[in-house]
Computed example of a mutant assay.
Amino acid sequence: MTSPPRRRVILMRHGAVQYFDPAAAAPLAAHGVPLTAEGLAQARTAGLALAAAGVHIDLAIASGLPRTLQTAEAVLGAQVAPPALETWPELEEARGGRLRDLPADALLDAFTALQRGPLTDDTRFLGGERLGDLLDRVLPAWERLRARQDWQVALVVAHGVVNAALLSHVVSGGQRMVLPGWQQEPACLNLIDLGPAPGDDVLRACNLAPTDWLQRDTRTTTMERLRDDFLGWSAARQKLHRVTP
């Protein structure tokens, strides 16, 4: 019996963004937020690392949101003969609800619910989209990628929750679930060898951060930092309202 053929998927999270601008009256719309200067640097570093290792990308996919397009374009900029970038909107991030609609006693926990679990189809991301609905759009896209025969190394730039769903699918042998506890640093690389069927997939590496491979001093998650950014933004807005006549 021979081993199943596998192809390499480089599953990335987009680079760093800033949702809560202290000078803005409201959080920036998640669908339109761009990469920060740091996020662009992270994406370029990832691209240079892949090129230096001799990795040739022959299929490139982004969710279509600006932060994933910018990340993918920065990575492809280091390739000698980059492929055309495709957009797959099925891979857009889980859609959060409006933070002001969440009860005050549930707001802070909502930021970290997906890292704690338990998670079910009815678990909602920041009071918004159900994980079951996310899986219904993300997993068929993953199988569409598997069915295509025109690539050997694919770059897929998506989002934290989407990546958690795909990584859960891979390590569970193809089950439909989202496991808690996944961490995805900005512009991180996950290396997956995609087999002919879900049970043949292999996770080679997870959450490799190109500007900080060892993450030596990092002890918080991206969602914990997002929660802290929100608290800082809220405090700044409250202070502004107190001093504004």
Score class of each variant (00 low, 15 high):
Val75Pro: 01
Ala62Cys: 15
Ala110Arg: 05
Glu93Tyr: 11
Asp122Met: 00
Gly64Arg: 05
Ala62His: 07
Gly97Arg: 08
Arg116Lys: 10
Leu65Asp: 14
Gly132His: 05
Thr120Arg: 04
Gly117Arg: 04
Ala60Arg: 12
Leu85Lys: 01
Thr120Gln: 02
Ala62Arg: 01
Leu119His: 08
Asp133Pro: 01
Asp101Ala: 02
Arg124Lys: 11
Arg100Ile: 00
Asp133Leu: 02
Thr123Pro: 12
Ala104Gly: 13
Arg95Ile: 12
Leu135His: 10
Thr112Leu: 03
Leu134Arg: 08
Leu114Thr: 15
Ala78Tyr: 11
Arg98His: 06
Ile61Tyr: 07
Ala104Leu: 15
Asp133Asn: 06
Ala110Met: 03
Pro66Leu: 12
Arg130Met: 12
Ala81Gln: 07
Ala141Ile: 11
Glu86Ser: 06
Arg124Ile: 03
Asp105Glu: 15
Val75Thr: 07
Glu129Trp: 00
Leu114Glu: 12
Gly128Lys: 09
Gly117Ile: 14
Gly117Asp: 15
Arg95Leu: 10
Leu135Ala: 10
Pro89Cys: 13
Gly77Ala: 09
Glu90Phe: 00
Ala84Thr: 08
Ala141Asp: 14
Trp88Arg: 09
Gly77Glu: 03
Leu99Val: 13
Asp105Thr: 15
Leu139Gly: 04
Pro140Ser: 03
Ala141Cys: 07
Leu126Phe: 06
Gly96Trp: 05
Arg67Phe: 03
Trp142Glu: 14
Glu92Asn: 06
Leu131Ser: 08
Phe125Val: 15
